[in-house]
Each structure stands twice: as structure tokens, then as C-alpha cells.
Design a protein around this nucleic acid. Structure first.
Lengths: 162, 162
DNA sequence: CTGCGCGTTCAATCTATATTGAACGTATCA
DNA sequence: TGATACGTTCAATATAGATTGAACGCGCAG
């Protein structure tokens, strides 16, 4: 492949790496996807370790993540023993799956905590000013949490499905 | 303040710290906001460093970030020299500002790269298979980038404004 | 003007997490 | 049934970036 073409690809790989790094997914995830996406031929783990200078273990894990999000798919080439990967062009689907996965996981983290505290607070219902304040704030927190979840489930997810 | 109340607050502070850490904002940002939010009285930087055991420098920077997002506001108490902070209850506005800030910044990162490469590719328009492939992929990338920006600007932002 | 009490800055340090790579399990081929 | 060529795992390591804290500037009180 022409070296000028190679240069362009490298620039994209680098950029994708920075981007995925900046959103907290690690550099190699973006690099790997972009490399596969800009490769005319399906790529193997060895191709990735060689071209991107990353470890085999890392490549293996990243590729599995990308596969779960539908960003790459495994293709079998008969006669070959290795796994070959090619990129999906359906970015919409990929982003949707990744968002649902990543953000959905994050929203679960907060579950449980608010309910627990509200139970304690309900028991201790004396007229104390500070307890009242705490109750009001935590009720407000819960209201917002519920609304956020609703918007996420009913509106954002729906929007992403288009 | 009752120590039981104090315990509840500490649990929330800890959780908020974990949450903000997990979304890549650092632990202290979440801790600080939650501490102020659950405090009946406006808090000073010294209060924060004492209660949360964080450095003054860090508290100063985090509070400034929270102020920019409208999550806390500075209040003057006459006769006092220190800055006092109290929390906003309008989470919707806060989240909106933070998202627009954080994600907006991220979307700018990718600008420029695609255009540059397309110019190079347009020049080298020979019939070569690999060049054609690269062109198609990058065009697709650009199409998606444009669509993503459109959805962000026209739909998500609009949704958040409610 | 001087000293003090603040908030801010930023190079040094620490830490959460991404990445590595040797050891391992597994499937394929002779 | 080995032998080999893979992909996977996970404890060890490296690194990005969050946090610290000493030095600083500024404004107010005396």
C-alpha cells in the first residue's frame, strides 16, 4: 500500500486514539477500530500488534469490546486459522449500543443509595431543622434521579434508535 | 449537627465522589458538590478542606468549575472576608451546562482532520483501488460526523432545554 | 505602609486505570 | 496423539491526569 495512503491512515488512527482516550475508553480502542475501518482487508490480531505496536492481550480485549458493540465483526477466511476482523459502517448502531452500555451501567451505580437513606430519614421524623433540611434535599435528589432516568429511557434512547 | 445526620451526608459525599470519578471528572468535584448541597449553611474553602480532607488548591479549582456550571453560587456574608458557597437545586440547568461544555468540547476535537484528508485525497484521484477505498471510508466518516453534530445541535440540546 | 488572611497557581507527586506480556487453555493439523 | 499456532487471562507495570501544597498576588485592617 502506498506510503502516502499509509500516512493518512496513521493520522486518523492517532486522532481516533486521542478521541477515545479523552472519553475514557483508552487509546487503543479507538486506534484499533480506526485501523480496521481504514483497512481494505480484514485484519488479524497480529496485524494489529504489528501496525499499532500494542500488546496481543490488549488487542484481544479491545477487539472483543468492539465486537460487542457491533463496531467490528469476525469473518472466517477458509484455509486460515487466525481470526479476521472487518469494520461495520453502521456508526449509528455502534454508537447507540456503546452509549446504552456505558451510560446504562453508570446509571445503575446510584441505585439503592437514595432509597436506603430515605428509609433512615423517614424513621427519624422529629421536628429538627437540620433533619428537615436533609430530607428536603434528598427528596429533591430522588425526584431528579427519577426524572433523569425517565428522560434517558423514554427520550434519549428513542432518539438514538432513529 | 447530629452525628447520624453526619454519617448520611458522608455516605452521599462518598457516592457522589465515586460517580464523578467514574465519569472522568475526578473524585473531589462530586464530593464537593454533594457536601455543599447537603449543608444547611453556605460553605467556605476551609470548610471543604477540613470536612473532605482535600487540598485548598484542589477545592479552589473544583469550586470554580462548579460555579461555571451553575452548580454552586458564591454568596457574600457581610462582615466576613471568606467566600461562601451554596448549592443550586436546579439540576436540570446544571447538567445541561455541564454536558454542553464537556461534550461540546469533545466534538470540536475532531474538526479539521477530516477536511484536511479529503483535500489530499481529492488531489490524488487516480483509479487505484486502495485510494478509492480510503476515499469512500473517509467520506462516510464525514457524513456521520456531520449527522452526529446535527443531532447533537438540533435534537439533544433541544431535549435538554426542557 | 505593613502584616495578615484570603484565593489562586502550577510544578511535583500520587493514583486510578490502561496496557503489557508471560503463562495458560484450546482447536487444528499431521 | 502430540505438536503447533492461535486467542485469552491476569498479575505486574506504565501512564494520563487528578491532587497536593509551597509560593505567590491581592486587598483589607490597623
Amino acid at each position: 500500500m502506498s506510503s502516502e495512503l499509509e500516512q493518512i491512515r496513521q493520522r486518523y488512527v492517532e486522532s481516533a486514539g486521542h478521541l477515545s482516550q479523552s472519553i475514557g475508553l483508552g487509546r487503543s480502542l479507538g486506534q484499533i477500530f480506526m485501523h480496521i475501518y481504514l483497512s481494505p482487508e480484514p485484519q488479524t490480531l497480529d496485524d494489529l500488534t504489528r501496525e499499532l505496536e500494542i500488546s496481543k492481550g490488549g488487542a484481544s480485549m479491545a477487539v472483543r469490546q468492539l465486537e460487542q458493540w457491533g463496531a467490528v465483526r469476525r469473518v472466517w477466511i477458509k484455509g486460515r486459522r487466525k481470526d479476521y476482523y472487518e469494520a461495520s459502517e453502521d456508526f449509528g448502531r455502534v454508537i447507540r449500543k456503546a452509549l446504552l452500555d456505558v451510560i446504562g451501567r453508570r446509571m445503575e451505580v446510584t441505585d439503592g443509595l437514595i432509597e436506603d437513606a430515605e428509609k433512615v430519614l423517614a424513621g427519624k421524623n422529629n421536628g429538627d431543622k437540620d433533619w428537615k433540611f436533609m430530607k428536603r434535599r434528598i427528596r429533591k435528589l430522588r425526584t431528579f434521579r427519577d426524572r433523569a432516568r425517565w428522560i434517558w429511557d423514554r427520550s434519549i434512547v428513542k432518539l438514538l434508535l432513529k
